[in-house]
Amino acid sequence: MMAKSNGKKLLEVSGLTMDFGGLRAVDSVGLDIFEGEIVALIGPNGAGKTTFFNCVTGIYEPTAGEVLIHPPGGTSKRINGMKPNSITTLGMARTFQNIRLFPAMTVLENVMIGRHCRTSTTILDAILSSRKAAREEKETIDKSYRLLEKVGLANEADEFSRNLSYGAQRRLEIARAMATDPFLLLLDEPAAGMNPQETHDLDELIVRIRKEDKLAILLIEHDMKLVMSISDRIYVMEYGKEIAQGTPREIKENPRVIEAYLGEEAHA
C-alpha cells in the first residue's frame, strides 16, 4: 500500500471534506503525491473527483481538511482557501474536464497566458514599451512556442483556439498548464471524448512530459486502459469517500473497486 520511497512528497492532502449545503461531496479524502509520480484518481461518475480537484486547486475552499504542498526547493505551505492564481503560482497547474480555453485568442496566446504568473511586466512597462517588457515578451513567445512544439501544435500557433479539433484543444490545455512552470500537473479527464488514436497519443505525451520535465502528474480519468498503463499508483473514490488505493495491479484485484464499478451482482 505504501508509496515508493524514492521521492520527496510534493502534495499532501489529508481529511479533505467538502460540503455543498447538506450534501457532502467529498468526505475526508487523503492523497499523497511524490516526486516524478503519475497518480490516477478514478471512480464512478459523481464520486466527487472533480470536486476534490477543485478543492486542491483553490476553485473551492474545502470545508475541512489539510492541503499541503512541498515545492521542490521551496518551503512547504498550507494552501486551503488560497486563491487559485496563488496556488498556480506556487507550482500546481491544472486542466479542465470540460475544456476551458480562451476561444477568441490564438493558440499561441492561450499558452502565453500561462506565462503570466512567471513574468512581471507592469502596466507602465507595457505603455513605455520598456526594454524589460520587450525582453519578457520575447521570452514568453519563445517558451510558449516551444511548448506548442512539444504537444504537436506548432503549425496551428496562429489559429484561433476554437478552430482546433477536440483532441488538439485538450493538448493545448496541457501546454497552457505547462507554461506556468508547474512541478505538479493536475489533469481532469484528459482523454474524455478522444478517439483511440488520440488517447494513445495522449498516453505518450503524458509519459514524455513526466520524463522530460520531471513533473509529477495527478489525473482523473475514466479510460481504464490509459489509467492502468501509465499510473504508478491509483486512488479510487465512490460517493465522496476514498475506497481504495494502490498500484494498478492491486486496484484491479480489489473487490471493493470491482463492486463499485460493476455492482454487487456482477461480482457475485
Partner: peptide, 9 residues
Amino acid sequence: IACVAMGVD
C-alpha cells in the same frame, strides 16, 4: 475561471 486557474490575479 480558466484565467484565474492559469495564475492571473
